[in-house]
Amino acid sequence: MNKILSRSYLGFLLVLLYAPILIVIIFSFTEAKVLGNWTGFSLKLYANLFQSGVHHTLGNALWNTLIIGLVAATASTLLGTMAAIGIYNLQPGPRKAIQTVNTLPILNPDIITAISLFLLFVSLGISQGYTTVILAHITFCTPYVVLSVLPCLKRMNENLYEAALDLGATPLFALRKILLPELRLGMISGFILAFTLSIDDFVITLFTIGNEGLETLSTFIYADARKGGLTPELRPLSAIIFITVLVLLLLINQRTANRKSVG
Protein backbone atom coordinates (compact mmCIF):
# COMPACT_ATOMS: atom_id res chain seq x y z
CA MET A 1 0.00 0.00 0.00
CA ASN A 2 2.71 2.37 1.10
CA LYS A 3 4.77 1.46 -1.91
CA ILE A 4 1.89 2.09 -4.32
CA LEU A 5 1.24 5.44 -2.68
CA SER A 6 4.85 6.60 -2.98
CA ARG A 7 5.15 5.34 -6.55
CA SER A 8 2.02 7.15 -7.63
CA TYR A 9 3.26 10.31 -5.93
CA LEU A 10 6.47 10.21 -7.98
CA GLY A 11 4.37 9.47 -11.05
CA PHE A 12 2.18 12.47 -10.36
CA LEU A 13 5.18 14.78 -10.04
CA LEU A 14 6.70 13.44 -13.24
CA VAL A 15 3.45 14.00 -15.15
CA LEU A 16 3.42 17.55 -13.80
CA LEU A 17 7.03 18.12 -14.89
CA TYR A 18 6.62 16.61 -18.33
CA ALA A 19 3.17 17.81 -19.37
CA PRO A 20 4.38 21.13 -20.82
CA ILE A 21 7.32 19.50 -22.63
CA LEU A 22 5.00 16.83 -24.05
CA ILE A 23 2.68 19.51 -25.36
CA VAL A 24 5.56 21.20 -27.17
CA ILE A 25 6.61 17.89 -28.72
CA ILE A 26 3.06 16.97 -29.78
CA PHE A 27 2.46 20.36 -31.35
CA SER A 28 5.75 20.23 -33.23
CA PHE A 29 3.96 17.86 -35.60
CA THR A 30 1.42 20.37 -36.80
CA GLU A 31 1.71 23.55 -38.82
CA ALA A 32 -0.33 25.94 -36.73
CA LYS A 33 1.32 29.26 -35.93
CA VAL A 34 -0.04 29.33 -32.38
CA LEU A 35 0.93 26.63 -29.92
CA GLY A 36 -2.22 24.78 -28.89
CA ASN A 37 -3.98 24.78 -32.26
CA TRP A 38 -4.04 21.39 -33.98
CA THR A 39 -4.38 21.70 -37.74
CA GLY A 40 -3.55 18.15 -38.72
CA PHE A 41 -0.38 16.11 -38.75
CA SER A 42 2.54 17.59 -40.69
CA LEU A 43 6.32 17.46 -40.73
CA LYS A 44 6.65 20.86 -42.35
CA LEU A 45 8.18 22.53 -39.30
CA TYR A 46 10.91 19.90 -39.17
CA ALA A 47 11.56 20.35 -42.86
CA ASN A 48 11.75 24.15 -42.42
CA LEU A 49 14.30 23.71 -39.68
CA PHE A 50 16.70 21.81 -41.92
CA GLN A 51 16.15 23.88 -45.03
CA SER A 52 18.68 26.65 -45.06
CA GLY A 53 17.20 30.06 -45.67
CA VAL A 54 13.71 29.41 -44.38
CA HIS A 55 14.66 30.34 -40.89
CA HIS A 56 17.90 32.11 -41.23
CA THR A 57 17.90 33.99 -37.88
CA LEU A 58 16.99 30.93 -35.82
CA GLY A 59 19.83 28.96 -37.40
CA ASN A 60 22.24 31.80 -36.69
CA ALA A 61 21.12 32.00 -33.09
CA LEU A 62 21.62 28.26 -32.62
CA TRP A 63 25.08 28.46 -34.20
CA ASN A 64 26.10 31.42 -31.98
CA THR A 65 24.88 29.58 -28.89
CA LEU A 66 27.02 26.53 -29.70
CA ILE A 67 30.14 28.57 -30.55
CA ILE A 68 29.88 30.70 -27.43
CA GLY A 69 29.27 27.59 -25.33
CA LEU A 70 32.27 25.74 -26.74
CA VAL A 71 34.69 28.67 -26.49
CA ALA A 72 33.54 29.64 -22.99
CA ALA A 73 33.62 26.03 -21.74
CA THR A 74 37.10 25.39 -23.15
CA ALA A 75 38.51 28.64 -21.76
CA SER A 76 36.96 28.13 -18.33
CA THR A 77 38.17 24.53 -18.17
CA LEU A 78 41.77 25.64 -18.85
CA LEU A 79 41.62 28.65 -16.54
CA GLY A 80 39.73 26.78 -13.82
CA THR A 81 42.02 23.74 -13.83
CA MET A 82 45.12 25.91 -13.59
CA ALA A 83 43.47 27.91 -10.83
CA ALA A 84 42.50 24.77 -8.91
CA ILE A 85 46.09 23.47 -8.98
CA GLY A 86 47.31 26.85 -7.78
CA ILE A 87 44.64 27.21 -5.09
CA TYR A 88 45.38 23.74 -3.75
CA ASN A 89 49.03 24.67 -3.20
CA LEU A 90 48.42 28.09 -1.63
CA GLN A 91 48.77 28.89 2.06
CA PRO A 92 45.46 28.74 3.96
CA GLY A 93 45.03 32.53 4.07
CA PRO A 94 45.12 33.41 0.35
CA ARG A 95 43.46 30.09 -0.45
CA LYS A 96 40.45 31.02 1.64
CA ALA A 97 40.34 34.47 0.01
CA ILE A 98 40.34 33.11 -3.56
CA GLN A 99 37.83 30.41 -2.73
CA THR A 100 35.46 32.98 -1.22
CA VAL A 101 35.64 35.23 -4.27
CA ASN A 102 35.30 32.12 -6.43
CA THR A 103 31.90 31.29 -4.91
CA LEU A 104 30.58 34.82 -5.46
CA PRO A 105 29.47 34.27 -9.09
CA ILE A 106 27.79 31.00 -8.01
CA LEU A 107 25.94 32.54 -5.08
CA ASN A 108 25.06 35.83 -6.77
CA PRO A 109 21.81 35.82 -8.70
CA ASP A 110 22.30 35.94 -12.47
CA ILE A 111 20.89 39.41 -12.72
CA ILE A 112 23.44 40.85 -10.27
CA THR A 113 26.34 39.28 -12.17
CA ALA A 114 24.75 40.54 -15.39
CA ILE A 115 24.34 44.13 -14.17
CA SER A 116 27.82 44.22 -12.64
CA LEU A 117 29.44 43.07 -15.89
CA PHE A 118 27.25 45.44 -17.90
CA LEU A 119 28.48 48.33 -15.75
CA LEU A 120 32.08 47.15 -16.17
CA PHE A 121 31.83 47.09 -19.95
CA VAL A 122 30.04 50.43 -20.26
CA SER A 123 32.39 52.19 -17.82
CA LEU A 124 35.36 51.01 -19.86
CA GLY A 125 33.61 51.97 -23.05
CA ILE A 126 33.97 48.48 -24.52
CA SER A 127 31.45 47.86 -27.28
CA GLN A 128 29.38 44.78 -26.55
CA GLY A 129 29.25 41.74 -28.77
CA TYR A 130 30.82 38.31 -29.12
CA THR A 131 33.84 39.09 -26.92
CA THR A 132 31.89 40.50 -24.01
CA VAL A 133 29.40 37.60 -24.01
CA ILE A 134 32.24 35.07 -24.00
CA LEU A 135 34.10 36.92 -21.22
CA ALA A 136 30.91 37.06 -19.19
CA HIS A 137 30.28 33.34 -19.72
CA ILE A 138 33.85 32.50 -18.66
CA THR A 139 33.24 34.55 -15.52
CA PHE A 140 30.24 32.55 -14.37
CA CYS A 141 31.43 29.13 -15.63
CA THR A 142 35.00 29.00 -14.26
CA PRO A 143 33.97 28.82 -10.57
CA TYR A 144 32.11 25.56 -11.31
CA VAL A 145 35.20 24.12 -13.03
CA VAL A 146 37.36 25.04 -10.01
CA LEU A 147 34.87 23.36 -7.69
CA SER A 148 34.79 20.18 -9.76
CA VAL A 149 38.60 19.91 -10.16
CA LEU A 150 39.55 20.64 -6.53
CA PRO A 151 38.14 17.34 -5.14
CA CYS A 152 40.36 15.40 -7.59
CA LEU A 153 43.43 17.17 -6.20
CA LYS A 154 42.36 16.37 -2.65
CA ARG A 155 41.99 12.70 -3.54
CA MET A 156 45.32 12.26 -5.34
CA ASN A 157 48.59 11.21 -3.75
CA GLU A 158 50.61 14.40 -3.26
CA ASN A 159 53.94 12.63 -3.38
CA LEU A 160 53.53 11.50 -6.97
CA TYR A 161 54.18 14.94 -8.42
CA GLU A 162 57.16 15.56 -6.13
CA ALA A 163 58.55 12.13 -6.99
CA ALA A 164 58.35 12.94 -10.70
CA LEU A 165 60.27 16.19 -10.13
CA ASP A 166 62.88 14.41 -8.00
CA LEU A 167 63.36 11.90 -10.77
CA GLY A 168 64.21 14.73 -13.11
CA ALA A 169 60.92 15.55 -14.80
CA THR A 170 60.39 19.17 -15.77
CA PRO A 171 57.29 20.79 -14.24
CA LEU A 172 55.56 20.72 -17.62
CA PHE A 173 56.35 17.03 -18.15
CA ALA A 174 55.14 16.19 -14.62
CA LEU A 175 51.97 18.19 -15.33
CA ARG A 176 51.28 16.22 -18.47
CA LYS A 177 52.16 12.78 -17.12
CA ILE A 178 51.07 12.97 -13.47
CA LEU A 179 48.65 15.81 -12.77
CA LEU A 180 46.45 15.89 -15.86
CA PRO A 181 45.55 12.16 -15.84
CA GLU A 182 44.48 12.48 -12.20
CA LEU A 183 42.42 15.57 -12.90
CA ARG A 184 40.83 14.35 -16.11
CA LEU A 185 37.48 13.32 -14.63
CA GLY A 186 37.05 16.61 -12.79
CA MET A 187 37.97 18.55 -15.91
CA ILE A 188 35.49 16.64 -18.06
CA SER A 189 32.61 17.16 -15.64
CA GLY A 190 33.64 20.81 -15.28
CA PHE A 191 33.62 21.23 -19.05
CA ILE A 192 30.19 19.62 -19.44
CA LEU A 193 28.80 21.73 -16.61
CA ALA A 194 30.27 24.91 -18.09
CA PHE A 195 28.91 24.10 -21.54
CA THR A 196 25.38 23.43 -20.29
CA LEU A 197 25.39 26.53 -18.10
CA SER A 198 26.56 28.59 -21.04
CA ILE A 199 24.01 27.37 -23.57
CA ASP A 200 21.19 27.66 -21.03
CA ASP A 201 22.10 31.15 -19.88
CA PHE A 202 19.74 33.97 -20.68
CA VAL A 203 20.04 36.88 -18.25
CA ILE A 204 23.82 37.41 -18.36
CA THR A 205 23.83 37.00 -22.14
CA LEU A 206 21.04 39.56 -22.56
CA PHE A 207 22.96 42.18 -20.58
CA THR A 208 26.31 41.68 -22.32
CA ILE A 209 25.27 40.95 -25.90
CA GLY A 210 24.92 44.56 -27.00
CA ASN A 211 22.49 45.70 -29.66
CA GLU A 212 24.24 44.96 -32.89
CA GLY A 213 22.01 42.10 -33.86
CA LEU A 214 23.91 39.25 -32.21
CA GLU A 215 21.43 36.66 -30.92
CA THR A 216 21.76 33.42 -29.00
CA LEU A 217 18.97 30.87 -28.73
CA SER A 218 17.67 32.27 -25.45
CA THR A 219 17.73 35.93 -26.46
CA PHE A 220 16.07 34.94 -29.73
CA ILE A 221 13.28 33.12 -27.91
CA TYR A 222 12.85 36.05 -25.54
CA ALA A 223 12.60 38.61 -28.32
CA ASP A 224 10.26 36.26 -30.15
CA ALA A 225 7.98 35.69 -27.18
CA ARG A 226 7.77 39.41 -26.49
CA LYS A 227 6.61 39.99 -30.04
CA GLY A 228 3.58 37.92 -29.11
CA GLY A 229 4.11 34.45 -30.43
CA LEU A 230 6.67 31.74 -30.54
CA THR A 231 8.30 31.06 -33.90
CA PRO A 232 6.71 27.71 -34.78
CA GLU A 233 10.11 26.24 -35.75
CA LEU A 234 11.19 26.47 -32.12
CA ARG A 235 8.86 23.57 -31.34
CA PRO A 236 10.67 20.97 -33.45
CA LEU A 237 13.99 22.42 -32.33
CA SER A 238 13.12 22.01 -28.63
CA ALA A 239 11.77 18.55 -29.33
CA ILE A 240 15.03 17.52 -31.01
CA ILE A 241 17.20 19.00 -28.23
CA PHE A 242 15.07 17.32 -25.60
CA ILE A 243 15.06 13.88 -27.21
CA THR A 244 18.84 14.06 -27.89
CA VAL A 245 19.57 14.88 -24.26
CA LEU A 246 17.19 12.16 -23.08
CA VAL A 247 18.82 9.50 -25.24
CA LEU A 248 22.35 10.62 -24.27
CA LEU A 249 21.60 10.55 -20.56
CA LEU A 250 19.88 7.16 -20.82
CA LEU A 251 22.87 5.76 -22.70
CA ILE A 252 25.33 7.07 -20.11
CA ASN A 253 23.15 5.65 -17.36
CA GLN A 254 22.96 2.28 -19.11
CA ARG A 255 26.72 2.15 -19.60
CA THR A 256 27.59 2.97 -16.01
CA ALA A 257 24.99 0.47 -14.79
CA ASN A 258 26.47 -2.25 -17.01
CA ARG A 259 29.99 -1.49 -15.90
CA LYS A 260 28.91 -1.71 -12.28
CA SER A 261 27.23 -5.08 -12.74
CA VAL A 262 30.31 -6.43 -14.56
CA GLY A 263 33.03 -5.00 -12.31
Binding site: L17, Y18, P20, I21, I23, V24, F27, L35, G36, T196, D200, F202, L217, S218, I221, Y222, A225, L230, L234, S238, I241, F242, V245, L246, L249
Partner: peptide, 16 residues
Protein backbone atom coordinates in the same frame (compact mmCIF):
# COMPACT_ATOMS: atom_id res chain seq x y z
CA UNK B 1 16.08 16.27 -17.32
CA UNK B 2 13.55 19.14 -17.64
CA UNK B 3 16.33 21.47 -16.49
CA UNK B 4 18.07 20.75 -19.77
CA UNK B 5 15.35 22.35 -21.82
CA UNK B 6 15.84 26.08 -22.13
CA UNK B 7 13.81 27.68 -19.34
CA UNK B 8 12.15 30.14 -21.70
CA UNK B 9 10.80 27.26 -23.79
CA UNK B 10 9.66 25.50 -20.61
CA UNK B 11 7.91 28.67 -19.51
CA UNK B 12 6.22 29.12 -22.86
CA UNK B 13 5.18 25.48 -22.73
CA UNK B 14 3.56 26.18 -19.37
CA UNK B 15 1.67 29.03 -20.96
CA UNK B 16 0.56 26.62 -23.69
Amino acid sequence: LPMWVNFLIRTLATVA
